[in-house]
């Protein structure tokens, strides 16, 4: 019988003897992983959605008068003085009209009695991806409002701001739930291992007296920590995946969710969460062992 066989047998025996405590700890760890990964998943999807939204982000500068070619060149120069942009597009009154008519589709009849120049000319500015944080966009829009002939600048301010604050809030929730995960994983596992050590004090003392090495006594507790981390995180992630599938099945097609493509964690993030959880639980187990295992 080699070392690892003995250690695995010992671990199995420990788990059988204290399975209720171990099970409760496993559930607590999985719940913490579930809470953390739930918010993290929303956060990641929101960031993806934010990326998509910012792909379509354009600042529209409505002008008092339609600029001639010279004016257009001057405006282009002024805009690029602030920063480089991805694209500057001048929309004439006629073009604005035809776009609007196209958007109206079958309802374009409503435009029959309207003049074709009733919509203002505008400049559509697509900023570079590097210039897409909320504060930079705000500054840029304020600058564009100072352009000669500028009437109004629009970029869906309210929506962008709300989205920005929502992702900010989510990042705080993710941090908090991450903190909760650290606390529960380390402290719960530490206290479970401590209870196991106390419950088996007599046996551990005997093992020592019959010649068990420190590693023979300690390794099963470390394995318990690793197992709790592994099982807890897998259970948590499996629950989240089930919840994710349920949400997709029941809410796909509904307005808001249809705007974004929701995706589950990629394998590398799943592995990171599992490894992190294992590390935290093993650390909890190790702390208890160092404190309470007198060998």
């Amino acid at each position: 019988m080699n070392f690892w066989f003995s250690v695995f047998r010992q671990t199995g025996r420990n788990l059988r003897q204290t399975w209720t405590t171990q099970f409760m700890t496993c559930l607590t760890v999985s719940l913490s992983v579930l809470i953390f990964s739930f918010f993290y998943l929303i956060y990641l999807n929101m960031l993806n959605a934010g990326d998509k939204v910012s792909d379509d982000l354009r600042l529209v500068v409505y002008l008092e008068e339609e600029p001639g070619p010279e004016m257009q060149e001057q405006l282009r120069l002024k805009i690029t003085q602030f920063d480089q942009v991805q694209e500057i597009k001048f929309i004439s009154k006629a073009e604005a009209y035809s776009r609007f008519a196209k958007e109206l589709g079958d309802n374009r009849d409503v435009l029959t009695d309207m003049p074709t120049d009733f919509l203002p000319a505008s400049i559509e500015v697509t900023p570079l991806r590097s210039l897409r944080s909320l504060s930079q966009i705000k500054l840029f829009s304020e600058y564009l409002a100072t352009l000669p002939g500028s009437q109004k600048v629009q970029y869906g301010q309210k929506w962008v701001e709300r989205f920005y604050y929502f992702t900010q809030l989510l990042s705080i929730v993710v941090l908090l739930s991450g903190f909760l995960l650290i606390l529960t994983a380390t402290f719960m596992v530490a206290s479970t291992i401590r209870l196991t050590i106390f419950a088996r004090q007599e046996e551990l003392e005997l093992l020592k007296l019959v010649g068990a090495t420190n590693n023979y006594i300690r390794t099963p507790f470390l394995l318990e920590g690793i197992l709790l981390g592994l099982m807890g995180s897998l259970l948590g992630l499996a629950s989240l995946y089930t919840l994710f599938q349920w949400i997709l099945r029941h809410f796909s097609g509904a307005g808001f969710l249809d705007l974004f493509t929701f995706t589950f964690f990629p394998p590398e993030i799943i592995c990171t969460i599992v490894i992190l959880s294992i590390i935290l639980c093993t650390a909890g187990s190790y702390t208890s062992m160092q404190k309470f295992l007198r060998i």
Partner: peptide, 26 residues
């Protein structure tokens, strides 16, 4: 110093398990 919640066989085996004796020998 017996482990009262373990069987007689398990109690006797413990001193051989720590020196990694084969299960059939134990």
């Amino acid at each position: 110093r017996l482990l009262t919640e373990r069987t007689v066989a398990e109690n006797i085996a413990i001193s051989m398990e720590v020196s990694y004796k084969k299960p059939q020998i134990i």
